[in-house]
Design a protein around this nucleic acid. Structure first.
Length: 418
DNA sequence: TCTGGGGTCCTAGGACCC
DNA sequence: TCTGGGGTCCTAGGACCC
């Protein structure tokens, strides 16, 4: 059995290019929410030296000088393009695990001699069907497939790499830094280096008890996986979330409780919607607020949790709890940058039980109302129907100055060929 | 003017139980 | 000298991922 990791190259930038051919030869960058940082760059933009994560306002010179095309994050577009890529991958292998918006693992039984050819065929098919370039890495475990993908990304000629047989060798693995391994973050990188472990080959040959002591069983699993022993399970369907968070920085700083409350209601509605899509209810609502830590002014951040009388996925319940929590932590005189909602103690609908205070018919009514709300917003776009407490004007909403059209999800914004 | 958002898992230690 | 043995649950903190 082979694990393959398929990773879309510069995914957000690629999505913008697919839908707008005039960008083909222009450097493209995509910004984070609020147009804060650069979070995706096409190869041309990378070549200009624009760093991943760089604050946008520090890149304006280079952007102007080289006529770089800039886009705000357009999740309506990226989410839909992701679905198309994943649908394509589903035709390439019997088992597909969607790992993130731009990555998926495939599990497939391919003869060793045909692995390279298979990887190339996956890449070619996704390109032909969606226009998105991908890299494909293959190996005996997920971690090796990830590592192979890292190598594939550097093979701009083929875009694929099979890590096994002759390629699973000391010289190749010695040339790869441990930081490239899935599961080795900054802290572990530094710790391992301080013990003389710098490259993947050294990590593979490290002492088990040392790894376990310093990196727990999680780290030991990583090392086993590098040795070709699968330790990380396969997930056919994403497990339901145990916590759901909805939070954004404001487009400008907010001082009034009224505006914070609107934003809290808005994020409550988003979080409750996510809760219902996984057929679950939450037992507690946490609200957190914070000022802008980058500003030299009085700082305040705090959170409060309200435990619900009974588990709920009913948006008004969540909004009410968020309101109570927010009022308990709000302090006047600060310039707030952010508010967020977290839902916890999440259980599936089946485990809900009616209490003395909630008769079943009332429960049914609320359930049907939320279904109607979700269905309208699914068909006509998020925000078609919303709660008045979310605010009509939403002056605090995030900046998205460079937003591209929702090319693939809105009839009015569909690309036109002349 | 200006610095993202959303998750999971593991461990240690304390409270509490019989 | 020496202070039972075994278990669960919860939380905070630390690590990682995209």
């Amino acid at each position: 059995m082979w694990y393959a990791l398929v990773d879309c190259n510069n995914f957000y930038a690629s999505c913008e290019k697919v839908c707008n051919p005039s960008l083909a030869k222009r450097p493209v960058v995509v910004l984070s929410n609020n147009d804060g940082n650069v979070i995706a760059r096409c190869p041309l933009a990378k070549a200009l030296g624009i760093e991943m994560g760089a604050p946008f306002h520090r890149c304006t010179n280079i952007i102007q000088k080289h006529n770089v095309a800039v886009f705000s994050s357009n999740y309506a577009l990226y989410g839909d393009m992701s679905r198309r890529v994943m649908d394509t991958l589903a035709t390439c292998a019997p088992y597909v695990e969607v790992y993130s918006i731009d990555e998926a693992f495939l599990l497939h039984d391919v003869p060793h001699a045909e692995a390279q050819h298979y990887a190339l065929s996956v890449r070619q098919k996704v390109m032909q069907w969606t226009g998105i370039p991908v890299s494909v890495g293959m190996g005996a475990t997920k971690t090796l497939a990830k590592l192979a993908n890292h190598i594939a990304k550097k093979r701009t000629d083929s875009g694929v790499f099979v890590l096994s047989g002759d390629s699973y060798c000391q010289s190749l693995l010695e040339a790869i830094d441990i930081a490239e391994v899935w599961g080795i973050g900054r802290r572990y990188e530094r710790m391992l280096q301080s013990h003389g472990i710098y490259n993947v080959w050294q990590l593979i040959n490290a002492d088990d008890s040392f790894i376990k002591k310093k990196m727990t069983v999680v780290g030991l699993r990583t090392v086993y996986e590098l040795r070709g022993i699968p330790c990380i399970g396969w997930e056919d369907a994403p497990p339901p979330k145990k916590t759901i968070v909805s939070s954004r920085s404001f487009g400008r700083q907010v001082e009034s409780l009224h505006e914070l409350d609107q934003a809290a209601a808005h994020y409550s509605a988003i979080a409750a919607g996510k809760l219902r899509t996984q057929h679950c209810a939450a037992g507690a609502v946490t609200v957190f607020v914070s000022t802008n830590p980058f500003k030299n002014e009085p700082q305040y951040s705090c959170s409060a949790t309200v435990v619900l009388d009974m588990h709920s996925a009913y948006t008004p319940d969540i909004i009410a709890a968020a309101h109570t929590a927010l009022c308990s932590i709000y302090r006047q005189g600060y310039r707030y940058k952010k508010v967020g909602i977290m839902l916890t103690d999440i259980i599936p609908y089946q485990e809900l039980s009616p209490t003395l205070f909630m008769h079943m018919d009332n429960y049914e009514k609320r359930y049907r109302l939320m279904q109607a709300l979700d269905s309208v917003n699914r068909q006509h776009g998020r925000g078609t129907v919303y709660f008045a407490s979310e605010g009509v004007v939403q002056p605090w909403s995030m900046r998205r100055k460079y937003l591209s059209p929702r090319y693939t999800t809105h009839w009015n914004e569909i690309p036109v060929v002349r």
